[in-house]
Write a protein that binds this DNA or RNA. Structure first.
Lengths: 208, 208
DNA sequence: TGTACATCAGTGAACGCGCGTTCACTGATGTAC
DNA sequence: TGTACATCAGTGAACGCGCGTTCACTGATGTAC
């Protein structure tokens, strides 16, 4: 195994994670720009001053949440656009993958959707950077496909951005439908599937 | 002309508009959920209590801002997808229309992008409702096109949502590039044009 | 293994400040006659 | 047109409250010998 932390470091990390978890829960019903430092420490059960042992500000905590929410997502994004299977299979797999991710991490998804255009600049920038990385990775994945023969770099990146944005829109729709009926969630899945199908058709005929 | 308001009503409307303008300016750098009532009255130059003569809360003011930002936009959205001209002409016209709207009303566009997934529920709902209306209107416009022959209602609405989302994404990109170089804005226009072109191709081959 | 000192995550009191909301008010505008 | 009363947009004082940040502290953990 890798290096074991000392008791002190382990405890510190545990508290830090408690801050992130508490903040994420509080952010289900408000934006980061109105999240209070004391509000978070109260939820964690520590003194307000303890906050400063881990973060400079709530904006700083927000950036850490971006890393937590998106940092671990890169492998999944690749899978979403992987070249395995025929077009229809890929789409179905992608939509299901997104639906399951939203079910598993609704608060993370909500946080990203909310703060992507939110009122805290460093957080917006952190999200924008991560999404740009996603687009690059998707582009690399798309380039592997024989369909990409003859495509310019610009066009591949254009399509990659279209996919990334489409994933976010779909995730956001699943989120809204999360508390609703099974039927409503299936409608979202169907809408998303059709939209991806249309994009897929456009992709196939791009060089016609 | 229509009914002329009394002096009192006219003055009241003027103050109300001053609240909306001041709030919109303040919201360039924060979210609605952190906007303070006293902050707004200070910017307008009236006593804090004057706020209650016009709005129940900042959330209420936010809903009024949604109406101001999106209510008058319906004619433009129709034009954006109108059937006049060939496919390439339509796309160019749509992208230019969006670019000009962002230049003319950057604060409104920012407000909508920010609060669409923001922390204030009534405002989110107001935006969602307006966007649903846009999608319906776009769908009606798309149905007029001969290309729509053989399309199901569901598929038309699917495409309408795709267009509406695409417009918002494009507007948001133009907004980010607003303070940047002319070159950067042209890159956004080019990206948006290509994405709409791809969607347009997908549309053309949908029934193949 | 034991001791003596260093580190540092979390504490708790204190601060000045701006917040949202209440209330009774004022004086210009509106209306009835 | 003039008068007497009603309306109501905006005022200003007052309230209790929670905020972010500072500071010196404590005591468990870490380290050097």
């Amino acid at each position: 195994m890798s290096h074991t932390l000392g008791i002190r470091q382990a405890q510190k990390q545990k508290t830090r994670q408690a801050f992130l978890d508490a903040a994420l829960a509080l952010l289900e019903e408000q934006s980061l720009s109105s999240l209070g430092l004391r509000e978070v420490t109260r939820a964690v059960g520590v003194a307000p001053t303890a906050f400063y042992r881990h973060f400079r500000s709530t904006a700083d905590l927000g950036v850490a949440l971006v890393d937590e929410a998106l940092g671990s997502l890169h492998p999944m994004v690749k899978t979403t656009v992987s070249t395995a299977g025929d077009s229809e299979e890929r789409i179905t797999r992608a939509v299901e993958l997104i639906a399951r991710h939203v079910e598993a991490y609704p608060a993370h998804v909500r946080f990203i959707a909310r703060e992507r255009h939110g009122g805290v600049q460093p957080v917006r920038e952190a999200i924008r950077d991560q999404l740009a990385r996603f687009a690059d990775e998707v582009k690399a994945e798309l380039a592997k496909d024989p369909q990409a023969d003859g495509w310019s770099d610009d066009d591949l990146l254009m399509l990659a951005h279209l996919y990334v944005d489409q994933m976010l829109i779909t995730a956001s729709l699943f989120l809204e439908a999360l508390e609703a009926s099974q039927d409503e969630r299936e409608q979202v899945a169907q809408l998303a599937t059709r939209q991806m199908r249309l994009i897929s058709i456009g992709r196939r005929h791009w060089l016609d």
